[in-house]
């Protein structure tokens, strides 16, 4: 649904990453784990899709976090409290089979954001948050509030587990009990983590990313390849069963 939202606050998480809280009572009430918010960037034509990082129905707010990647997100990083932004949300199929289950959430870089809200829907949530190095670590305290356990990993070993997400997940699966694994991050990370999870006989869901146009399923810009044919990331996803994703395509 379309909602004219008002900026409550914009906070800088690190040199390129921001957290944006919007007053959006209708979307906050409707948002489910892993769904998208398509946010209008001031002065730009196309909306930018962000996984909903958090939603508070009681407060009537949603939160999206984003990295400045181009002109659109740069404009979004300059909004002020009180500004009105049109948001289309909550859109798409998110993490739909996690209620009451023991879920390992695996996030890489800015891929961690939608997992924070999703963790609220799990029976027991564990987070494995993976970053390039210590300077990129964000939202760890937020995850600590909604997860039973959190594990940090950095590619260079500057904080937490030294290594890639798949290696950490391999270790965690061997030593803990989970029902399923939910992953969001770089494509190569989602591929390797899902291979580990599926190999261990766990359900695995991945949140894909693609450049989007309309955000409603009409324009066919954001297609991905699956065993069931071409799918639209915006409304058939963004979350897909990892078994169905064709990573090679």
């Amino acid at each position: 649904m379309l909602e004219d939202t008002r900026v409550v606050s914009l906070d800088r998480l690190n040199d390129t990453t921001y957290s944006l809280t919007l007053r959006a009572p209708k979307i906050a009430a409707a948002a489910r784990a892993g769904q998208l918010a398509h946010v209008t960037c001031p002065g730009f034509l196309l909306r930018r899709p962000f996984g909903i990082c958090d939603a508070d129905a009681a407060e009537g707010t949603i939160r999206v976090c984003f990295e400045v990647r181009g002109d659109g997100t740069e404009a979004l990083a300059k909004v002020n409290a009180g500004d009105v932004l049109s948001v289309n949300g909550a859109v798409g199929h998110g993490f739909e089979d996690i209620k009451g289950r023991r879920v390992l959430f695996v996030g890489g870089g800015i891929g961690i954001f939608p997992l924070l809200y999703a963790a609220r829907f799990a029976g027991v949530a564990t987070a494995a948050l993976c970053f390039r190095d210590k300077s990129r670590v964000v939202l760890a305290p937020d995850f600590a509030k909604v997860c039973k356990e959190i594990f940090l990993a950095t590619d260079d070993g500057s904080l937490g587990f030294h290594g890639y997400a798949a290696d950490l997940v391999n270790e965690l699966i061997a030593t803990h009990e989970y029902d399923c694994v939910c992953v969001c991050g770089p494509k190569i990370m989602m591929k390797t983590v899902s291979e580990v999870a599926l190999g261990a006989g766990l359900d695995c869901y991945v949140s894909l990313e693609e450049r989007m146009g309309c955000g409603v399923g009409a324009c066919l810009a954001c297609v991905c390849q699956t065993m069931l044919g071409q799918k639209r990331v915006c409304i058939d996803g963004p979350v897909f069963d990892a078994k169905e994703v064709r990573w090679d395509a």
């Binding site: 034509l45 196309l46 002109d71 659109g72 450049r211 146009g213 954001c222």
Partner: peptide, 12 residues
């Protein structure tokens, strides 16, 4: 193949 869309000044 994707990428299939890109914003441009006042257009796409």
């Amino acid at each position: 193949a994707v990428v299939r869309i890109a914003e441009t000044p006042s257009g796409m």
